[in-house]
Design a protein around this nucleic acid. Structure first.
Length: 868
RNA sequence: GGUCGUGUAGCUCAGUUGGUUAGAGCGCAUGCUUCACACGCAUGAGGCCCCUGGUUCGAAUCCAGGCACGACCACCA
């Protein structure tokens, strides 16, 4: 079949092809590993390779972080597919409890409504509507990026089967005594009206007032005076001389309109330098105070409720909002002469990571997961198991060990895991998995926990929902039909979890905890953590800064391939990535370059044809390109196997542009008969580039090697190439390149017009036969004509390394030679110094010494020639 | 306070177990409608590899300390 040039326009316009190509892939069904086996492109006995897509939140749209995640994961999965594995990449979305509820609440607010106006069911209906729209947007965007996801296995955290798994796991943990309900201190967000996990709390620096209050016999300092109404303890440092006689006593203290009773105790955590060295302890409204209360047996008195108002315990202040109470309380203290002084200080305030509202720590009856309790089945706690799996593998089994890339995150992981406290999993919001616990009417005493609602009358389900990370934590197996599903048996544990390091704790760690507990298996063998996307100045991308880049806009402008490449090249795992439009444009240029390389090959070569084994090299250039290509195959394969994506892409880029296009194609225009070699290389280069730039490679492939568009002949399911024959450097072709570049440089610096063919004579004792045999290439690539005789005195003489070039033009070469001479002299001096160092001669390996001697010899020869 | 990361050309970054005359892309300069590509081709300029010590025959690379920037964890009552 002859390729019509009209099929291949001069510039590659990604937008014309990408959607069609995705459609072509998807309708082939070959994203699905079962279909691959059915079609005979994958052997059913090969190993499986599974990745679950970190499910995007059903709020809003794709951002660059998603784009980078997709670029990596699709690269990994396509590479594995080309290597012949049964590959499965599971798509899905996350209901994102608080985030989604907040978005819909904001929508409602625009209509002047609150969720309570609708009621629970109507509100949830409204959220579902929003979600279904949002899900479709996300699906479209994932396709835009070229993600080879198996859509037939798509999941959603609120799907019925996934939800059943959630309830199942909850029930089992309850039965194992790992889930308990307790009146404990939690992080309360008054705006979200819900609890937050410890790692959902962020800290912000702010200016605050530090109040010094007369507090019975002592003075204490506090930034939250109103909480002192709930004090039940007074803490001092054990060695603090000022308070020795108070330790162990119970004090009655008047604070204006209220009286409180506190127990004095000593604890080393008290900083005697700060404030007055004495702390009023408020167990119900401070994490550390709560811990002290447990340790020293203090009463827990809750004075602030879930609405941010003072409780009945606050006596005369009951019912007041916290802020108002503070003003009143301060005024009352002042009247009573109890306010000593006020200082301005900087302190950290805890805020909700979703909405930025100040957190109100308070005690509340909530559901928790006990991370320290031994599980009968394992004889170990969740914490211990999760550490073990990453340290040495579950029960010491190396197959049950989780690797983390990059390695430095091991330390971060262990540190977090070792300090992990019980995980509060109940949330006071409506959107999410409702806690599968029922209480018998009339109290909380009688409890039923189960996957199905209890039989009989008079049961009332817990109003709360589960932390969104509870269901995400089950994602590797809840998506695969645990416990009895074929997919679960076949594809779990998964091979890689690829995600940003910012959710190492939120998600990765929790998956490890929950998966080991439930399945006894690790969730994944490897964690690959990519960096976060920043702008060119290194700032986070955000709406308020207006520095965000919309991936869809970039795809429209430059193509998905270009965007993908720009997220891979120049990045290292765990390191943040600076993204800017020029970079994407740069890789668009590469895509276009490759397009034109293919275009040239396919228009020049009459018959695109697949070549099974490496053709015999006929010329020096052939030998050079094939040896380099073999080396490329080996290097790229090795790098991808060890997850070194950026270096692999750079190698491909460099070979494609600087070797194949800049040199070999130019040679091919001169030497004829390159059909086989060009076909051989293009075919395999397409395969190797495919995981990085899937669209353009599939377009080229389908117009050349698969013109009938047979699914099983798609590029996506080809076999990864292997080196056939000698791999390595250039040998004599390097010398040829050097001679040509030298001539071009002489021409350029002497302003010889490019069209002018210049007489040349090259003399060499060492390389005469080589130069003789490659005259044609030199002549055409450097625009020179070889002559037998030439007036050396009037010619430009360039003394090369082992050869002499005489160019029949007038010009000046002195400046250049002078510069070369200076550099050489410096170089020689450093080599001489090294080689005259006896220690070096005695201790360095002989190969290194010989190499240095050889360098020196050559440098000296060159210098001599330049001087003459 | 603790832990970690980063510092290489104007910009964004490579630099794989210590041995290169330190690289790439963009940008810049000069020239080119060379029949695949101006999203291109050719040639070129541009670097105390943050600082100070140390280890070593030899350090951009390893170690210690410092400076600058960044992230995370803990958290100030």
């Amino acid at each position: 079949m002859k390729i019509e040039s009209s099929n291949l326009p001069k510039a590659y316009e990604a937008g014309k092809y990408e959607d069609d190509i995705y459609q072509y892939w998807e309708s082939s069904g070959l994203f699905n590993p079962d279909e691959c086996i059915k079609r005979g492109v994958t052997d059913k006995d090969t190993p499986t390779f599974t990745i679950v897509l970190p499910p995007p939140n059903v709020t809003g749209k794709l951002h660059l972080g998603h784009a980078s995640m997709l670029a990596y994961e699709d690269l990994i999965i396509r590479f594995q597919r080309l290597q012949g594995k049964q590959t499965l990449w599971v798509p899905g979305t996350d209901h994102a409890a608080i985030a989604t509820q907040t978005v819909v609440e904001k929508e409602l607010a625009k209509e002047g409504l609150k969720k309570e106006d609708l009621g629970r069911e109507k509100f949830l209906e409204r959220v579902r509507e929003y979600v279904s729209k949002s899900k479709n947007t996300i699906r479209k965007q994932l396709r835009k990026m070229g993600a080879s996801l198996d859509w037939s296995r798509e999941k959603y955290t609120l799907d019925e089967d996934v939800s059943r798994t959630v309830y199942h796991v909850f029930t089992r943990m309850y039965e194992d005594g790992l889930i308990y309900r307790g009146d404990r201190i939690v992080n309360w967000c008054p705006r979200c009206h819900s609890t937050l996990a410890d790692d959902e709390v962020e800290y912000k620096e702010q200016k605050a007032k530090l109040y010094y209050i007369k507090y019975g016999p002592v003075v204490i300092a506090t930034t939250r005076p109103e909480t002192k109404i709930g004090d039940t303890g007074l803490a001092v440092h054990p060695d603090d001389q000022r308070y020795q006689d108070l330790i162990g006593k119970e004090l009655e203290i008047n604070l204006g309109k209220v009286d409180i009773k506190v127990k004095v105790f000593a604890d080393k955590e008290v900083d005697p330098e700060f404030g007055s060295g004495a702390i009023g302890v408020t167990p119900a409204h401070s994490q550390i105070d709560f811990a002290w209360a447990e340790k020293y047996g203090l009463e827990v008195k809750k004075i602030i409720d879930e609405d941010g108002k003072m409780t009945a315990e606050a006596g005369p202040y009951a019912g007041l909002p916290v802020e108002e109470c503070r003003q009143k309380f301060i005024a009352d203290l002042e009247k009573a002469g109890l306010l000593v002084k006020v200082e301005e200080i900087e302190n950290n305030i805890s805020v909700c990571y979703r909405c930025g509202t100040t957190i109100e720590p308070l005690t509340s009856k909530q559901w928790f997961i006990d991370v320290n309790k031994k599980i009968p089945r394992f004889g170990k706690s969740l914490k211990e198991l999760s550490i073990e799996a990453v340290r040495q593998g579950l029960s010491g089994d190396p197959k049950q060990k989780i690797d983390i890339i990059p390695e430095r995150f091991y330390k971060t992981y262990f540190q977090w895991m070792e300090n992990l406290r019980d995980w509060c999993i109940s949330r006071q919001i409506w959107w999410g998995h409702r806690i599968p616990v029922w209480y018998k009417e009339g109290g909380d005493e009688e409890v039923y926990v189960g996957v199905e609602p209890p039989k009989g009358e008079g049961w009332r389900q817990d109003e709360d929902t589960l932390d969104t990370w509870f269901s995400s934590a089950l994602w590797t197996f809840s998506t695969l039909g645990w416990p009895e599903g074929e997919d679960f048996k076949r594809f779990h544990p998964t091979q890689v979890l690829e995600t940003g390091y910012d959710i190492l704790f939120f998600w990765v760690a929790r998956m490890i905890i929950m998966t080991i507990y439930t399945t006894g298996q690790i969730p994944f063998e490897k964690v690959y953590l990519h960096g976060l996307i920043r702008d060119k100045q290194g700032r986070k991308m955000s709406k308020s800064l207006g520095n965000g880049i919309d991936p869809l806009e970039m795809i429209a402008k430059y193509g998905a391939d270009a965007l993908r490449l720009s997220m891979i090249i120049g990045t290292a795992p765990g390191n943040d990535i600076r993204m800017y439009e020029e970079k994407i444009a740069g890789y668009r240029n590469f895509v276009n370059k490759f397009w034109n390389i293919a275009r040239f090959i396919l228009l020049t070569v009459n018959k695109p044809e697949r070549i099974a084994s490496q053709p015999l090299p006929k010329t020096l250039a052939d030998q050079w390109i094939l040896a380099n290509f073999n080396q490329l195959i080996q290097e790229v394969t090795g790098l991808l196997e060890q997850f070194s994506f950026s270096p692999a892409a750079e190698k491909l880029y460099e070979f494609t542009w600087s070797k194949l296009a800049d040199w070999y194609l130019e040679v091919a225009k001169i030497e004829q008969g390159k059909d086989e070699i060009l076909n051989y290389i293009l075919e395999r280069l397409l395969i190797m580039l495919h995981p990085f730039v899937p669209f353009v490679t599939e377009v080229i492939w389908s117009t050349s090697y698969n013109p009938e568009k047979k699914p099983e002949l798609m590029l996506m399911v080809q076999k990864w190439p292997q080196a056939q024959g000698e791999a390595g450097g250039g040998g004599q072709f390097d010398l040829l390149q050097e001679i040509i570049v030298n001539i071009r440089s002489l021409r350029s610096t002497n302003k010889i017009p490019p069209v002018e063919v210049v007489d040349v004579k090259i003399e060499s004792e060492k390389y005469q036969p080589l130069i003789e045999s490659q005259k044609e290439l030199i002549a055409k690539l450097a625009r020179v004509g070889f002559v037998e005789e030439l007036d050396k005195d009037s010619a430009l003489h360039y003394p090369g390394d082992g050869y002499d070039i005489y160019l029949a033009v007038s010009g000046d070469i002195k400046a250049r030679l002078e510069k070369e001479r200076r550099e050489l002299e410096k170089y020689i001096a450093s080599l001489e110094k090294k080689l005259s160092n006896e220690e070096f001669l005695r201790k360095a390996p002989s190969e290194v010494i010989n190499k240095e001697r050889e360098k020196l010899k050559q440098a000296r020869e060159k210098l001599n020639k330049i001087k003459n």
